[in-house]
Amino acid sequence: MSRKILIVEDEGILRVGTTLQLMSLGFEVVGHFQTGEEAVDNVVDLNPDLILMDIQLAGKMNGIETVREIQKKIDVPVVYLSAYSSHELIEEAETTKPFRYLVKPLDEMELKFTIETAIDTYQRQKRVEIKDEVLDNLHGLLYRFFVKDKKVNFINGSSESIIGLSERELTDFEGHFLEQFIIEEDQENVLNTMNNSLNSKVSFTMNYRIRNNNKINYFHEMGQPVYGDEGEITHIDGIIFDLNTEH
């Protein structure tokens, strides 16, 4: 899928030339405008992957002011274009966090590299932000359990915050890292579920109760064994949910 580019350039010859240049490089030009006002009015409908913005636009808004207005509507990477710029203008442009500045006339290979790098960098950052947001709002404890080394790492919080047990307490186990705290009536089901998952190489889900400080707490756990190139199990990725509000 070709990347969608929006051009905002007040010089007609440069605007048309840049459009043709981008098309020859395999990009899709979804719009090319002379003024910032036009860009602001149309940017949401066009939904570009990147904006090439002349920093010194003629009209009511310059390129920097236009980007500020666009950023109120959508989140999109910006590359500024300029034949020359004062130090003060560059400092002002930095407040809009552009990906890069390109000097006109534009070098074709530099233009292509800059656009592709800017879009790829932006998309990676968004994926990280989404992942962090999911982890922050996930009401469960993510873990990675290294079977051979008998070690467990908690990814989005401490074990104490969810299951009421510190990492120091989760030692001296053979199967499940919570086995010594799971009440006796549930231990057989937990071990059978884990063994079936490991032997069949399938994901698992189970409920169990933990006794801690003379109090019984209810939990739901889901997990997936992960195997190496030679078929050996390396670790289990899983999540534990606190069900105590339901009991």
Rank of each mutant, 00 (worst) to 15 (best):
H87K: 13
M53G: 00
K72D: 13
Y101V: 10
S86P: 02
L102Y: 04
E94W: 11
I70T: 03
A93K: 10
K104A: 06
D107L: 13
A58M: 07
P48Y: 06
N62V: 11
L57M: 14
K60L: 07
I55Q: 03
M61Y: 15
I51Y: 01
T96H: 11
Q56G: 04
E65P: 06
D49H: 09
E108Y: 11
F99S: 03
Y80S: 02
D75R: 04
A83T: 14
K60P: 05
F99V: 09
A58K: 08
A118I: 02
D107M: 09
V44E: 12
L89G: 00
S82K: 02
I115N: 03
T117C: 02
R100G: 01
E92H: 07
V43A: 07
Q56N: 13
P77N: 08
M109W: 08
D45K: 15
E91V: 14
K112T: 00
T114S: 15
E108A: 13
V78F: 03
V78E: 01
L81F: 05
G59H: 03
E108S: 15
Y84Q: 14
P77C: 11
A83C: 06
K73P: 05
V43C: 08
T66N: 06
K72E: 14
G63I: 05
V79H: 10
P98M: 11
K97Y: 15
P105H: 15
E65H: 10
S86T: 14
L52M: 13
P48A: 10
P98C: 08
L57H: 06
E108N: 14
P48C: 12
D107S: 10
S82L: 08
T117E: 04
T95A: 05
E116R: 14
L102V: 01
T95L: 09
K97A: 13
I74M: 06
Y84T: 07
